[in-house]
Amino acid sequence: MSVTEKIGIMICGHGSRNQNAMKEFAKVSEGLKGRFGDAPVEYGYLEFANPVISHGLDSLREQGCTKVLAVPGMLFAAGHAKNDIPSVLNTYQAQNPGMEILYGRELGVDLKMIRAAASRIQEALDAAEGDADKHETLLMVVGRGSSDPDANSNINKIMRMLWEGFGFGWGEVCYSGVTFPLVEPGLEHAAKLGYKRIVVFPYFLFTGVLIKRIYSFTDQVAERYPDIEFLKAGYLNDHDLVLSTFVDRVNEIEAGQNVMNCQMCKYREQVLGFEDQVGLAQESHHHHVEGIGGGLENCPCKGDCDASCRDEEFCKKHGLKWTPLHSHDHSHDHGHEHDHDHSHDHDHGHHHHPYPHADHPHGPNSMKKG
């Protein structure tokens, strides 16, 4: 390291209109401060919240940082981690040649993350009122869901490690959107397998609309099967082992070990069913929604957004500014990686590659409102 070099840490998140989710993300970022010596830590989002990624980078530059170690605040590497964030970082570096930005990998399949997940599941088991033993228990791990099969497959490995680690009777996986099976059909299937207890664990970092819907669908399916005990485990949040994994990812960049899994990447290899996506351009699809959605702390949902702010009539009724969400003049039945239940017509000059299984009977359209 040269005597003039100053390192900064940048945590890059997706963003949400749910203020509580953003508070949790900020808490994780704050929890990382001091874990890298005197190196400053900033964070930013792709969309729907402030600060945006470029603002976090501005702050590091103003603090004199000449080298930034940037990591995606995401569990797995799908389109956001592979395309959108790198595009934002590359654009910023091109505009600020005096700052070197090095990009790390996602949290990924990691033993620390699995132990953090196990801790959340154990908390749910400890709080349970029933007496079902582990061999009478089914574990349902709920992933976010992506149009990237590599990212989706990682949830299955996480589930298997947890299933085998606890010794549960059975394990299943479902997804909150984009791919299949979705939560409701996944739980319906699981309920028919004959287990006395089903533990529903959202493998998510933070709260938000999707967490609320996962729990809502759990309640709905539980009403149909009163003889089964359904437990709703908490999501990962700021578990100390999650923070430790973030630290590992930053340290990997500095050590030159930040290698993503490119052997199964649909943009680099001929992944079954996704062969036509090899070599697609790396570009961000979020530039037009950077920062919108922030400042809704006075929303009637008190920060715990239930997506009502996406409805124009709701906003008029409550005197709120209505900001239409990310939409285009084409169908969203292809499984983009966040929620689309809205529309406004304009052309952003880019194209989302269609998800090849958009017509699957158990998905992959984002979950309907519960």
Rank of each mutant, 00 (worst) to 15 (best):
H342M: 08
R160A: 06
D238S: 15
M140G: 13
G73Y: 04
P181W: 00
K316G: 06
H360K: 06
K368C: 03
K23N: 09
V199Y: 02
V52H: 05
V68A: 04
K23H: 05
V242D: 03
E337Q: 07
R213E: 12
T323V: 14
D58L: 07
E290R: 11
Y215F: 13
H189K: 13
G370I: 05
Y355P: 00
E24A: 10
N298A: 15
K196R: 11
N261D: 15
F217Y: 14
T137Q: 02
Y92E: 02
S366N: 03
L32K: 02
K266R: 13
L280M: 11
N258D: 11
A49K: 11
A233L: 12
K82C: 10
A132H: 04
P185D: 03
A281S: 14
G130I: 08
M113Q: 05
D84M: 04
F217R: 11
L162I: 06
V28H: 08
E164T: 08
S153Q: 11
D150L: 05
E283F: 03
N90K: 07
K82R: 12
E223V: 10
F274N: 13
Q93C: 01
R213C: 07
D227W: 06
V247M: 11
M260W: 07
N298M: 14
V289K: 05
K134Q: 09
D58G: 07
E172W: 06
D347N: 14
A233Y: 08
D248I: 05
C301V: 11
C309E: 07
P324R: 05
P181M: 01
V289L: 07
P364H: 10
A132S: 13
P202S: 02
A78W: 00
P300E: 10
H360L: 08
A21C: 14
I253F: 00
P97R: 02
K82T: 10
H338G: 06
V250Y: 01
D329Y: 06
H340I: 13
R105F: 00
K368F: 07
P72Y: 02
A358R: 14
H346D: 12
H318W: 12
E123F: 02
C174N: 02
V271C: 03
P51V: 09
N156P: 00
H14L: 10
Y235I: 10
K6R: 15
A358I: 09
D276S: 14
A81K: 02
A94R: 04
L193S: 05
